[in-house]
Design a protein around this nucleic acid. Structure first.
Lengths: 200, 200
DNA sequence: TTTTAGTGTTCACGATCCTGAACATTCTGC
DNA sequence: GCAGAATGTTCAGGATCGTGAACACTAAAA
């Protein structure tokens, strides 16, 4: 089975769905840290041969081995692969009326950018009409999320904690904790939120 | 060398610096997708034995193998490992005056939460005084970032593109592109931004 | 009950990783 | 020029991965 990336044809042109150019990536971060193969190998507790072979895409390292190597930089696996996910640059600017509405009813979620699949981050402008509620059944999904209230007041529930946030107040939690948002005031509430990975 | 995580002692108690509980994580995301080991194996093009052994932490899969498995879900490596980085829950709410100031001079960055090391996401309330400028030397770092302007106007430069954004307008780009922020108007500008991974 | 289809687990074996050591090359200092 | 130390590369071999096939179990259908 074909596994090794042929960097001679250009790492950007390869079939992304089957293989990854780990080698170039590792070399880039190693050089950014100004380390030699041997020095990184020493810190990571692997041999310099391993680093060499990985960078040359002449082997397919195990997750554990790659983690040990990255620990020597140091860098997390998530950070390392986050570099992989960055695709072709699309347009960087979005006018207020270009934001994509992905909510409905009393809750409006206006999303920055349309195609989420290739992104590490989902940014939303959320607007809760008076009485709007994400529901008694608490939401749960993987990842982390946070936000800042811009206008109005919002009751936020995270696990067993409840608090009413006003303009300038913020929240941040891991999304696998049950959570709920509710506008219990008389005026609409607006906030800007971000979460990773995108979960819509 | 010890490589396999003993899940019987509790995956949360293990030495995070050396090993990862890939097994539980994979099982969680597989079940979230409502797939059996065999069905996932079929989609991923691996054998069900591989899935079983990985989930039982009885082997240390290669990066390529894990990628093939995750492609079957589908989920990226970055997303998968982003789940790993989430540590113990801290307090989820932050009052406006609790945000940590990390900027200086004409630019104020007020950060949601203090300890970034363990987080996947950095959320900032940014405030640019009239004339404030991140500098002619363009910023560059790894990851992705985006934001929404709340008040005032801001000139944003990304690579060779320049645009002035007003309230409600947004931006999103990969951080390795050179970028610059500048308040060229007479009034202060405020925006809320997010980036991953945290880069301060 | 028996059959069929589904689940996850275990095992032998070929393929591959990863090491330890040698090799080739390029510097720097003398 | 020649030692010395640094760099990255290559190779044999033991350790491990990943497969293909069998196994044990459960649930639903005949």
């Amino acid at each position: 089975m074909f596994r090794i990336v042929n960097t001679k044809t250009g790492p950007g042109d390869m079939d992304q769905s089957t293989d990854i150019d780990i080698g170039s990536r590792l070399k880039a971060v190693r050089l950014a840290a100004k380390l030699s193969q041997r020095e990184l190998a020493r810190r990571a507790g692997v041999t310099n041969a391993t680093i060499s072979l990985i960078e040359a895409n002449q082997m397919n390292p195990s997750v554990g081995a790659l983690k040990r190597v990255l620990d020597g930089l140091p860098m997390s696996l998530a950070q390392f692969f986050a570099l992989e996910d960055a695709p072709a640059a699309s347009k960087p600017f979005y006018a207020a009326d270009e934001l994509v509405e992905v909510g409905k009813g009393k809750i409006s979620y206006r999303q920055v950018g349309a195609d989420l699949r290739s992104r590490a981050l989902q940014i939303l402008v959320e607007r809760y009409a008076p009485g709007a509620d994400t529901g008694r059944v608490m939401l749960r999904h993987a990842g982390e999320e946070g936000g800042v209230v811009v206008r109005g007041r919002l009751e936020v529930t995270v696990a067993d904690q409840v608090r009413v946030l006003g303009p300038g107040d913020a929240y941040y939690f891991e999304s696998d904790q049950p959570h709920r948002f509710r506008n219990i005031g008389p005026e609409p509430c607006e906030l800007i939120s971000a979460c990773t990975p995108p979960t819509f």
